[in-house]
Computed example of a mutant assay.
Amino acid sequence: MVIPTQYPIMVIGGAEDKVNECSILTAFFESAGGKLATIGIIPCASQEPSAVGDRYYQIFKRMGAHRVEVLDIRRPHECDELRWLDILDDCTGVFVTGGDQVRLFHFINDSKFIAAIRKRLHLGSLVLAGTSAGAAIMGEKMISGGSSGESPNRSLVDLMDGLGIIPEVLVDQHFHNRNRMARLLSAIATYPEKLGMGIDEDTCAAFRGDGSFEILGKGSITVIDPGELAYTNHPESDETSPLSLHNLTVHILNRGDLYHYQHRTVLPS
C-alpha cells in the first residue's frame, strides 16, 4: 500500500507523551495512514519486549489503526525469517521502541529486514519512527553509550556504526534531560563531517523527505554544525583531556521550527 506521508522518518528523543495529547505518536499514526494504517512495532531494543510492544500496541489500536502487529524478534537476525518479512511487507508504518541501541543494532543490522525497510523508504511507501534507542541508530555513526556532566573529552562518549538511515546526522537523545551536550560535542569532535542532533524528551525531528525536518513536541533540538570547524585538538588529545572545538555553529530549535539538514540552514517556519 502506497500512502501519501507528511513525515517519512521521525526521530524521537524518548519519553514521548503516551497518555495525554500524544502529539508525536499521533503525527506518526496519521503519517502512516491514520485509520487505514498497518503499524508494525519493533520492541527488540528492550529487555522487556513483550511489555513494551503491548504498550504501543494498545496506543495505536486506541487511535484506530486498521492493524497493529508486534514484531517480537527475540534473537539476532531472526528478522530474516519470512514470518516477520511478510508482516513488514504489509506495514505502512514501523515504530522502533527504546531500550539498548547496541542490542537493537546487533539484532537487525545487515539483515533482510533492514534492507526491506530501506527499500520501502526509498519507494516512499513506509513511515519509520524511532524513539530513544530507536533514534540513536538512525545515523551512519551512533552514540552507543557514555557519560555526562563533564567537559567534552574522548572518554565521555562511546561510538560505533549505526544503521545509516539518515547518514548525515549523529543523534543523541534524552538530551537536555540528561545533560548530554558535552557527550554530543565529544562525538562531533570524532566525526566532524556529521551534523550533531541532541533531541530532548517528548520531542521529535520529523523529516519531511525534502532534506529538511520539522520540530514536533514540547522540548528543543540542539543542532551542532561543525561545517566551519576551524580547529580541534581531538587527534592529539588523550582520553580525558578537555577538547577544543573552534567555530562551531549551534542552533536551538523548538516546535514548528524547520531546518534543512542537507544545506545546514534554518528555514522560515
Rank of each mutant, 00 (worst) to 15 (best):
G99S: 09
E81C: 05
G130N: 09
G196S: 07
S212P: 05
R183H: 10
I59P: 00
I165V: 15
I73K: 00
E48K: 10
E201C: 13
L184M: 05
I41R: 00
M142C: 13
H122Q: 15
H234A: 11
A45L: 13
C79W: 00
L71Q: 02
L25D: 01
A65F: 07
M181W: 11
G99R: 05
G93W: 09
V52C: 06
L253M: 03
I73T: 06
I252L: 14
R255S: 13
P152Y: 09
I224F: 11
V70A: 01
I59M: 06
S50C: 10
T26G: 04
H122T: 13
T265M: 10
D86I: 08
L123R: 14
G217I: 12
G162M: 11
T26I: 11
Y191H: 15
G196I: 09
F207Y: 11
P226W: 08
F60K: 05
N109Q: 14
G146P: 04
L82P: 01
F95T: 03
I199P: 00
V127Q: 06
E140F: 13
H66I: 02
N247I: 05
E193N: 12
A116M: 13
R255I: 12
D72V: 07
I188N: 02
I224P: 01
D238T: 14
S244P: 00
V70E: 01
G40A: 15
T38N: 08
V169Y: 02
M197L: 15
I215D: 05
G209R: 09
Y57L: 13
Q58S: 14
P167A: 03
S237F: 03
I12R: 09
D200N: 05
P226H: 05
M63S: 04
G139N: 00
N254Y: 12
L104Q: 12
G124K: 01
Q58H: 14
H106I: 02
I188D: 04
G211F: 11
D54Q: 13
S50R: 15
E48I: 13
S125Y: 01
P268D: 13
S241I: 04
L245I: 09
A187K: 05
L71C: 04
F105H: 07
P76F: 08
S31E: 08
S155F: 09
L121A: 12
A45E: 10
I108A: 04
I165N: 02
S244L: 11
G139W: 06
D225E: 08
M142D: 07
V169M: 02
E201F: 09
M10G: 03
A133D: 07
A65E: 01
P152D: 09
V250Q: 11
P43N: 03
D54G: 00
K18A: 06
R118N: 15
E30N: 14
V70Q: 02
S46W: 07
R103N: 10
G146L: 10
H77D: 04
T232P: 09
G198T: 02
E81A: 10
T5P: 03
S237R: 04
N254M: 14
G93K: 05
M181V: 11
G99F: 11
G99L: 12
H234I: 07
L248S: 06
M197F: 13
G146V: 04
F175S: 07
K218E: 15
A65W: 02
S50E: 15
R178I: 00
S144F: 08
I3A: 07
I165E: 05
N153H: 15
I252A: 10
G14A: 00
I137F: 12
E16M: 11
L85A: 01
G149F: 03
F113L: 10
